[in-house]
Measured scan of single mutants.
Amino acid sequence: TYTWNTKEEAKQAFKELLKEKRVPSNASWEQAMKMIINDPRYSALAKLSEKKQAFNAYKVQTE
């Protein structure tokens, strides 16, 4: 089980997950979700809006 003390740690864990699963920077949210949804870190960020925000930040960083 994973635990995160801060929102920032949770966001980092979520981005690490995207990186580890090699989600391409041109992937849509739907494509990315299919690649990461079974990992416990997918739940790091509770709100869908937070997940999408972190995903978009990840995409910008990896382009």
Rank of each mutant, 00 (worst) to 15 (best):
T1V: 10
T1R: 09
T1H: 15
T1S: 15
Y2V: 15
Y2D: 14
T3G: 09
T3Q: 14
T3K: 10
T3Y: 10
T3L: 13
W4G: 08
W4P: 10
W4K: 07
W4N: 08
W4I: 05
N5M: 08
N5W: 09
N5C: 14
N5I: 12
N5D: 14
T6G: 06
T6V: 05
T6S: 08
T6C: 07
K7N: 07
K7Y: 10
K7I: 12
K7L: 13
K7D: 09
E8G: 10
E8H: 08
E8P: 05
E9P: 02
E9Y: 04
A10Q: 09
A10I: 03
A10V: 03
A10Y: 03
A10H: 04
A10K: 08
A10N: 04
A10E: 06
K11A: 15
K11E: 15
K11C: 15
K11V: 15
K11R: 12
Q12W: 09
Q12G: 09
Q12T: 12
Q12C: 12
Q12S: 09
Q12N: 11
A13G: 04
A13E: 04
A13P: 01
A13N: 05
A13L: 08
A13R: 05
F14Y: 02
F14V: 00
F14S: 00
F14K: 00
F14I: 01
F14E: 00
K15N: 15
K15R: 14
K15E: 15
K15S: 13
K15D: 15
K15I: 15
K15M: 15
E16A: 14
E16F: 05
E16L: 07
E16G: 09
E16Q: 09
L17W: 01
L17E: 00
L17S: 03
L18T: 01
L18I: 04
L18Q: 00
L18M: 05
L18D: 00
L18C: 05
K19V: 15
K19H: 15
K19F: 15
K19P: 00
K19N: 13
K19S: 14
E20Q: 07
E20M: 05
E20H: 05
K21I: 04
K21H: 07
R22Y: 07
R22K: 11
R22F: 08
R22V: 07
R22G: 13
R22T: 05
V23I: 07
V23W: 00
V23E: 01
V23C: 04
V23P: 04
P24L: 02
P24W: 02
P24Q: 05
P24S: 06
P24D: 06
P24I: 01
P24V: 02
P24R: 04
P24E: 05
P24T: 04
S25P: 10
S25M: 14
S25K: 14
N26C: 12
N26R: 07
N26Q: 09
N26V: 07
N26T: 11
N26G: 09
N26M: 06
A27G: 05
A27Q: 04
A27P: 01
A27H: 05
A27Y: 10
S28N: 11
S28K: 08
S28W: 02
S28C: 08
S28Q: 06
S28A: 07
S28H: 08
S28L: 06
S28E: 05
W29Q: 00
W29E: 00
W29V: 02
E30Y: 08
E30R: 11
E30A: 11
E30S: 12
Q31I: 09
Q31N: 10
Q31H: 07
Q31P: 00
Q31Y: 08
Q31R: 07
A32H: 00
A32K: 00
A32Q: 02
A32W: 03
A32R: 00
A32L: 02
A32E: 00
M33L: 11
M33T: 06
M33I: 10
M33G: 02
M33Q: 14
K34G: 12
K34D: 10
K34N: 12
K34V: 11
M35G: 03
M35P: 00
M35D: 05
M35K: 05
M35L: 11
I36R: 00
I36F: 02
I37L: 11
I37E: 12
I37T: 09
I37F: 12
I37S: 13
N38F: 09
N38D: 12
N38W: 06
N38M: 10
N38T: 11
N38R: 08
N38V: 06
D39A: 01
D39M: 00
D39V: 00
D39T: 01
D39Q: 00
D39K: 00
D39L: 01
P40F: 13
P40D: 08
P40Q: 06
P40V: 11
R41L: 02
R41P: 00
R41D: 01
R41C: 02
R41T: 06
Y42M: 03
Y42I: 01
Y42F: 09
S43I: 08
S43P: 06
S43K: 14
S43M: 12
A44I: 05
A44Q: 04
A44R: 04
L45A: 02
L45Q: 01
L45E: 01
A46C: 10
A46L: 07
A46R: 11
A46E: 15
A46V: 12
K47V: 11
K47E: 14
K47Q: 12
K47Y: 08
K47F: 07
L48Q: 11
L48E: 14
L48I: 11
L48W: 07
L48M: 10
L48P: 07
S49M: 06
S49W: 09
E50F: 03
E50M: 04
K51F: 04
K51Q: 04
K51E: 01
K51R: 08
K52N: 03
K52D: 02
Q53T: 08
Q53A: 11
Q53E: 14
Q53I: 09
Q53W: 07
A54I: 12
A54H: 04
F55D: 02
F55E: 02
F55V: 03
F55A: 03
F55C: 04
N56T: 08
N56H: 13
N56A: 13
N56S: 09
N56Y: 14
A57E: 15
A57W: 10
A57F: 09
A57Y: 08
A57I: 07
A57R: 11
Y58I: 03
Y58D: 01
K59L: 10
K59E: 03
K59V: 10
K59A: 09
K59N: 04
V60F: 14
V60D: 07
V60K: 15
V60Y: 12
V60G: 08
V60I: 12
V60A: 14
V60W: 12
V60T: 13
Q61H: 09
Q61R: 06
Q61V: 10
Q61L: 12
Q61A: 13
Q61G: 11
T62A: 10
T62E: 14
T62P: 08
T62G: 12
T62K: 08
E63S: 14
E63W: 05
E63F: 06
